[in-house]
Amino acid sequence: MSERSPSGSAGRWATLPPATGSAVMATGILSVGLHLTGFELLSVVALWLASALWLLLTIGFTALFLGDRRRWRTSAGTPPALTAVAATTVLGVRYELLGWTPVAVGLLVLAALVWPVLLIAVLRHLTRRAPGAAFLICVATQGLAVLSAVLAPTCGDWLAWAALPLFLLGLVLYGDALTRFDFGQVVRGAGDHWIAGGAMAISALAGSKLLASGVWSGGAETALRTTTLVLLALDLIWYVVLLGGEIVRPRPGYDLLRWATVFPLGMTAVAALSTSAATGVGWLDSLGRVLLWIAVAVCLLTAYGFARAR
Rank of each mutant, 00 (worst) to 15 (best):
R180Y: 01
A112T: 08
V240P: 13
V114S: 02
L159Q: 03
F306E: 12
G99I: 09
G184Y: 11
S22P: 01
R124Q: 12
H35L: 10
R70Y: 06
L126K: 00
L136F: 04
A14R: 01
R71E: 15
T302K: 07
L301F: 13
L57Q: 12
L243N: 13
I137P: 05
T62A: 14
L118C: 06
D285A: 15
A152W: 07
A223S: 14
A260D: 06
L144K: 02
A130G: 07
D285I: 05
L171Y: 13
I59L: 12
P116Q: 04
L118V: 06
L110K: 03
A297C: 13
A104F: 00
T20R: 05
K209F: 14
V296R: 05
W293E: 08
T78H: 12
A87F: 01
G21Q: 00
L118Y: 00
G8S: 04
G266Y: 00
Y304H: 13
G156R: 07
A204N: 04
P264F: 04
W259Q: 03
G184W: 11
Q142V: 05
A152G: 07
A160C: 04
S208K: 06
L256V: 14
P6H: 03
A233E: 04
M200E: 11
E221M: 13
A278R: 13
L232P: 01
V248F: 15
A50W: 05
L82T: 01
L64Y: 06
G60I: 08
V187F: 09
A46P: 01
G38V: 05
R73D: 12
G11L: 03
V90C: 10
A23P: 05
G218R: 09
V114K: 00
F183Y: 13
V240F: 02
P17L: 02
S9W: 14
L147F: 06
A63S: 14
W293A: 09
W158H: 15
W13N: 00
A297F: 10
V230C: 10
M267K: 11
A163L: 10
A160V: 05
A212H: 06
W158P: 04
A19N: 11
W48K: 00
A145P: 11
T78K: 10
G245W: 08
S31Q: 07
P79I: 03
T127N: 11
R124A: 12
Y95F: 14
A81R: 03
W72K: 01
L273G: 13
S208A: 15
I237T: 15
G253H: 15
L292R: 13
H193R: 14
A14L: 02
